[in-house]
């Protein structure tokens, strides 16, 4: 059957002229390859350069404020442009609290939605729901803000906040008079805006779990719930936290919708029913009207602070992921007895 015999003259076969010209010329491919390499490196550098330029511009603008107020800028809670006093603490507080509440509400909801869709719902539901979720993520900020202002805030003022105050009024977070526009309203609208994004990411992440792992759990007689707990969640734990971090990044910088419902009052109240202010909101509200040099400079420093806060929060979250490696893993079996007997 195997009657193939190599041609003895094979080695001696001369290269045909056209073949030689092909193998010995550089060819258009090589030139394109090099060209693409330069292009890619250039693109990479330009991103870094843009980031550096942004930081430099912000710093330049903020230099006067930094020199004049020093650390007082970040720890003072008095913001009065007319009197020339600039303390950014209320904005920092508002940004952190609204983002934290938003993430606390949005993250479990997003992960639960994603889990129900990938682990429990029929497969044919997955695609339409995913499309809908992505569509929600694409709704412009100002539209969320409009809806929140005309639908959510009145409802909060008339129904939800009085209810919370009646049953949880003993907590300092739910005391004081109710205006509707409030830190909590801001947090809620942020939560609604980041939920689709985190959900969409979480679905992608959950779909990345190798089938072989799910099969391993199924073959051992795991229920759907157990497959999720044993095979799925431990595998995607850090990616899910990463999705949460991305959501938090968006929450910290969220501007328009928050500005419309948070109340815009640069003061710190413990109550979540009280109006608040965020770094992003004060920028968008005051930039156009900032006439004095120091006011403008202070706003630049607000921008710089916002960038720094986002950066620090992202770095911290990444550290957190690494320090709790087996967050979702089942509790380890204690084995003191085993070690002594073995």
């Amino acid at each position: 059957m195997n009657d193939f015999q190599p041609d003895p003259s094979w080695e001696a076969l001369p290269l045909a002229a056209e073949t030689r010209s092909l193998t010995h010329s550089v060819g258009i491919g090589r030139i394109l390859d090099q060209g693409f390499g330069f292009l890619a490196v250039g693109a990479g550098i330009s991103v870094l350069a843009l980031a550096a330029l942004l930081g430099w511009e912000l710093y330049q603008g903020a230099e006067e404020a930094i020199r004049r107020y020093g650390m007082g800028f970040l720890v003072s809670s008095h913001w009065d442009p007319v009197a020339g006093r600039f303390g950014a603490l209320p904005f920092l507080y508002g940004t952190f609290v609204s983002s934290a509440i938003a993430l606390l509400l949005a993250f479990p909801l997003s992960v639960a939605t994603a889990l129900s869709l990938t682990e429990f719902a029929p497969v044919r539901l997955r695609r339409p729901v995913l499309a809908l979720v992505d569509l929600m993520a694409a709704v412009p900020s100002v539209v969320w803000g409009l809806w929140a202002m005309f639908e959510m805030v009145p409802w909060l003022r008339q129904t939800a906040f009085p209810f919370l105050q009646r049953f949880f009024g003993w907590l300092p977070f739910f005391q004081g008079s109710i205006y509707g526009v409030s830190l909590l309203a801001g947090a809620l609208v942020i939560a609604m805006m980041i939920t689709p994004i985190v959900t969409s990411l979480a679905i992608e992440i959950l779909q990345s779990v190798p089938l072989t792992l799910r099969e391993a759990a199924w073959a051992l007689g795991a229920t759907r719930w157990e497959v999720m707990r044993v095979a799925v969640l431990p595998y995607v734990r850090s990616s899910l936290v990463g999705a949460g971090v991305l959501g938090l990044g968006r929450a910290l910088g969220e501007t328009m919708a928050v500005t419309m419902v948070i109340g815009n009052r640069p003061e710190i109240f413990l109550s979540l029913f009280a109006p608040g202010y965020t770094l992003a909101s004060v920028l968008v509200n005051e930039f156009a009207e900032a006439t004095s040099e120091e006011h403008l400079s202070a706003l630049f420093e607000i921008g710089l602070t916002l960038v720094a806060v986002t950066f620090v929060v992202n770095s911290l979250a990444r550290l957190l992921i690494r320090s709790v490696p087996f967050f979702f893993a089942p509790r380890p079996l204690r084995t003191e007895s085993m070690e002594t007997s073995g």
């Binding site: 190798p210 072989t212 792992l213 099969e215 051992l220 007689g221 431990p234 595998y235």
Partner: peptide, 30 residues
């Protein structure tokens, strides 16, 4: 049924976040 009929796959698939011991015992724990 799947507890009575075990299965070993083409590609080894230990649970990556579990120790050797946890991998062996996971079926019993389930």
């Amino acid at each position: 049924l799947r507890r009575r009929v075990g299965m070993v796959f083409q590609k080894s698939n230990p649970f990556p976040t579990m120790s050797i011991q946890e991998n062996v015992l996971i079926g019993l724990r389930l």
